[in-house]
């Protein structure tokens, strides 16, 4: 971690305005914001650690726990909602046995919801490892997750 963190920081000057872009880079590298990394960023930008944590906890993009290998993101946008997103989210929770924002203990799956991925015409939709699955039903959720005996 030490090496890649130094590498990330080397392309910045260490001003406060760079805090959010740096945290985004760190998360892109590690998949989440490890505590040590946030402390290093605070030192580098010459701000209090609480300031860095305050920013990281304010913005929805930042995570403090690692993600699972398979990332399942359910859209809860308006169009998805009126077309049945709540049932989709429930089915996901039931199949995976975790709540929103959690990762399965074997680090295989993590489940998140987002306000809108902007594929409203294809609602309700999911994103599984970056691939959008459109026009979902509880039945399709089950099929998707059991494909290849993954669950």
């Amino acid at each position: 971690m030490e090496y890649s963190l130094s590498e990330i920081l080397s392309s910045y000057k260490g001003t406060q305005g760079e805090l959010i872009p740096i945290l985004q880079k760190v998360q892109a590298e590690f998949g989440y914001l490890p505590e040590e990394a946030m402390n290093r960023v605070a030192e580098f930008c010459r701000v209090a650690e609480s300031k860095v944590f305050g920013i990281a906890s304010f913005y929805a993009q930042f995570r403090f726990v690692p993600l699972g290998r398979t990332q399942v993101t359910a859209c809860r946008g308006t169009a998805c909602h009126v077309r049945g997103a709540p049932q989709i989210v429930d089915e996901l929770k039931r199949q995976l046995g975790i709540e929103e924002g959690e990762t399965t203990p074997d680090l295989e799956y993590s489940l998140e919801t987002v306000a809108c991925i902007g594929c409203c015409a294809l609602a309700p939709c999911l994103v599984i490892n970056g691939k959008v699955e459109s026009k979902m039903t509880p039945k399709k959720v089950k099929e998707l997750l059991t494909k290849g005996g993954q669950v």
């Binding site: 169009a79 306000a115 809108c116 594929c119 409203c120």
Partner: peptide, 11 residues
């Protein structure tokens, strides 16, 4: 910063 759920015109 198009954050409205249900809007994607800026994108």
């Amino acid at each position: 910063d198009e954050g409205d759920p249900g809007a994607f015109q800026d994108r």
